[in-house]
Simulated scan of single mutants.
Amino acid sequence: MRYSTRIKPISYFKANAAEVLADLNDGAEPMILTQNGEAKAVIQDIRSYEQTQETLAMLKVLALGMEDVRAGRVTPLADVKERLKARRRETDD
């Protein structure tokens, strides 16, 4: 991924917003916007943003699960299966 061509001043974005949004919608890489020579924001298409958010959520769930394992907060699979079977029997009655 080559970000150097995707770094633009905010004035460029203001002058070319429709074109930038169309490019992003067509799958272009995110664009880094600068102000006074400093990176200030990243603009990307909504699909990529949502995908990133889903990935972060999955990673958080994974990290929490690993933390539970390290802390010993686990239940043997056989116990879980038995509880699920018991629940199913209760709802079938």
Score class of each variant (00 low, 15 high):
residue 43 I to E: 02
residue 29 E to C: 06
residue 51 Q to T: 15
residue 27 G to C: 06
residue 32 I to F: 06
residue 29 E to N: 09
residue 24 L to N: 02
residue 25 N to L: 04
residue 44 Q to D: 12
residue 58 M to K: 13
residue 50 E to H: 14
residue 63 A to M: 13
residue 56 L to D: 09
residue 62 L to F: 11
residue 14 K to C: 04
residue 7 I to L: 11
residue 38 E to G: 08
residue 22 A to I: 03
residue 52 T to R: 13
residue 10 I to D: 00
residue 44 Q to M: 15
residue 5 T to H: 15
residue 23 D to H: 03
residue 49 Y to S: 12
residue 28 A to P: 03
residue 27 G to T: 06
residue 55 T to P: 09
residue 58 M to T: 12
residue 58 M to L: 15
residue 23 D to P: 01
residue 51 Q to I: 13
residue 56 L to I: 12
residue 12 Y to A: 01
residue 63 A to Q: 12
residue 42 V to D: 07
residue 5 T to K: 15
residue 20 V to M: 02
residue 56 L to W: 08
residue 29 E to Y: 07
residue 52 T to I: 12
residue 52 T to E: 14
residue 34 T to N: 04
residue 30 P to C: 07
residue 24 L to H: 03
residue 62 L to E: 11
residue 15 A to T: 04
residue 57 A to V: 11
residue 44 Q to W: 10
residue 7 I to N: 08
residue 38 E to W: 09
residue 26 D to A: 10
residue 36 N to D: 12
residue 36 N to V: 06
residue 44 Q to P: 09
residue 10 I to A: 01
residue 34 T to I: 07
residue 33 L to C: 02
residue 54 E to Q: 15
residue 47 R to I: 13
residue 56 L to S: 11
residue 34 T to F: 06
residue 23 D to C: 03
residue 45 D to C: 12
residue 12 Y to E: 01
residue 15 A to N: 06
residue 23 D to L: 04
residue 43 I to W: 03
residue 33 L to D: 00
residue 26 D to V: 03
residue 50 E to P: 09
residue 39 A to P: 04
residue 43 I to P: 02
residue 44 Q to G: 10
residue 56 L to C: 10
residue 34 T to M: 06
residue 48 S to G: 14
residue 8 K to I: 06
residue 7 I to E: 11
residue 27 G to L: 04
residue 40 K to N: 09
residue 61 V to Y: 03
residue 5 T to N: 15
residue 8 K to R: 14
residue 45 D to V: 08
residue 19 E to T: 01
residue 18 A to T: 06
residue 11 S to G: 07
residue 16 N to G: 02
residue 9 P to I: 06
residue 63 A to W: 09
residue 32 I to N: 02
residue 41 A to V: 07
residue 43 I to F: 05
residue 30 P to W: 01
residue 49 Y to W: 15
residue 12 Y to R: 01
residue 15 A to D: 05
residue 55 T to M: 14
residue 61 V to W: 02
residue 53 Q to N: 13
residue 57 A to Q: 13
residue 56 L to A: 11
residue 31 M to N: 02
residue 59 L to D: 06
residue 31 M to K: 05
residue 14 K to D: 05
residue 63 A to Y: 09
residue 53 Q to S: 11
residue 15 A to C: 04
residue 19 E to R: 00
residue 30 P to T: 04
residue 30 P to Q: 05
residue 21 L to C: 08
residue 14 K to R: 09
residue 46 I to R: 14
residue 60 K to C: 01
residue 27 G to V: 06
residue 9 P to H: 07
residue 35 Q to D: 09
residue 53 Q to F: 11
residue 43 I to G: 02
residue 27 G to Q: 07
residue 56 L to H: 10
residue 47 R to Q: 14
residue 55 T to Y: 11
residue 52 T to L: 13
residue 34 T to K: 05
residue 53 Q to R: 15
residue 13 F to C: 00
residue 17 A to F: 00
residue 42 V to L: 11
residue 36 N to F: 10
residue 14 K to S: 05
residue 13 F to P: 00
residue 58 M to I: 13
residue 22 A to E: 08
residue 31 M to H: 06
residue 30 P to L: 03
residue 11 S to C: 07
residue 13 F to V: 01
residue 39 A to M: 10
residue 9 P to K: 04
residue 49 Y to F: 15
residue 30 P to I: 02
residue 44 Q to H: 11
residue 40 K to H: 09
residue 21 L to F: 04
residue 12 Y to V: 02
residue 50 E to C: 14
residue 41 A to E: 08
residue 18 A to F: 03
residue 42 V to P: 05
residue 23 D to V: 00
residue 60 K to D: 02
residue 61 V to P: 01
residue 51 Q to G: 14
